[in-house]
């Protein structure tokens, strides 16, 4: 009886501590939402307004203003590059996991080393290349770059999922006379649906939030959502509520996707090493 009461007390104590810490970390996000629901005078008041009647007017303003094209560019760049990663990554992962080619360990190593190259190092040649190919400020350039950034990650991740398929399954299918196409469509694809989800999620996060290439290779036509936020640093005066509403909208897709697929997130971030 006494031990369980001591246990209960410590559980309550640690819960309080935990929730305080979580609150501190989550607070900036909460504050972003709150600021977006204020009017401009409320958002730029000193001392800060804590109690107020929420309004969606700033969200409406952002959505009816010049924000949507940026948002659509982000969506095109990240969805198209994610699909390309899946299309190119799955065969490569298959070759490395199910039917290992010669020196596949070296290939793996080479793949991932390209992901670890600092973005800064490849910026100059990519910029010159894009300029010569007339791809500056073109969404195609971002799609191609995001595909190449995420492809090594995708291959590693998909490989880690393919390795979990019991080899007997392939044996059995082959004994039954199943063709290669059948093997891929009937065995591989259904079994690695979680793998495809994890890969898509990680590609989506990295390409949606990507800023370095976007700011250097696009200016107006192909500019993505983070670049819309840049316009708030300079020359727009005090538009804190609008800023917060735009930041909320720009962050929403990745936040929702990450929350829905929390399990896949860990695996994706560690390239399949941690389950």
């Amino acid at each position: 009886m006494t031990t369980s009461m001591v246990g209960m007390r410590s559980k309550i104590l640690w819960s309080v501590v935990g929730w305080l810490v979580v609150f501190v970390f989550f607070f900036p996000v909460l504050w972003m939402w709150l600021e977006g629901l204020k009017t401009e005078p409320q958002a730029a008041s000193s001392p800060p307004t804590i109690l107020f009647v929420p309004t969606l007017s700033e969200f409406q303003e952002v959505l009816s203003g010049d924000f949507p094209p940026f948002f659509i560019n982000s969506a095109i760049a990240s969805i198209a590059s994610t699909l390309l990663v899946l299309v190119f990554g799955l065969p490569a992962a298959y070759a490395l996991a199910i039917r290992p080619v010669k020196k596949s360990r070296d290939v793996l190593f080479f793949f991932i080393s390209t992901r670890f190259l600092p973005f800064a190092a490849s910026l100059v040649p990519l910029y010159l290349l894009a300029r010569d190919l007339q791809l500056l400020d073109n969404i195609l350039a971002l799609i191609l770059i995001y595909t190449t950034i995420n492809l090594p990650l995708g291959v590693w991740l998909l490989r880690s999922f393919l390795l979990e398929i019991p080899p007997d399954l392939f044996e059995a299918a082959r004994v039954d006379g199943a063709g290669f196409r059948h093997e891929i469509l009937r065995i591989v694809v259904p079994l690695i649906t979680p793998g495809l989800a994890a890969t898509s999620l990680i590609c989506l996060i990295f390409s949606w939030n990507e800023f370095f290439y976007a700011v250097n290779l696009t200016s107006s036509v192909a500019a993505t959502a983070p670049l819309f936020l840049v316009s708030f640093i300079s020359g727009r005066g005090l538009f804190y509520a609008k800023l917060a509403a735009a930041a909320t909208l720009a962050s929403l897709p990745v936040l929702l996707a990450g929350w829905i697929a929390q399990k896949q997130l860990i695996r994706g971030l560690t390239m399949g090493a941690v389950k």
Binding site: P28, M32, N209, F211, A244, A250, L255, G258
Partner: peptide
């Protein structure tokens, strides 16, 4: 709630 800061767009987070 804890993973939210990691998911928020870095440019948005910095601006906030």
């Amino acid at each position: 709630l804890m993973i939210a800061p990691f998911l928020i767009m870095p440019t948005a987070g910095a601006l906030i």
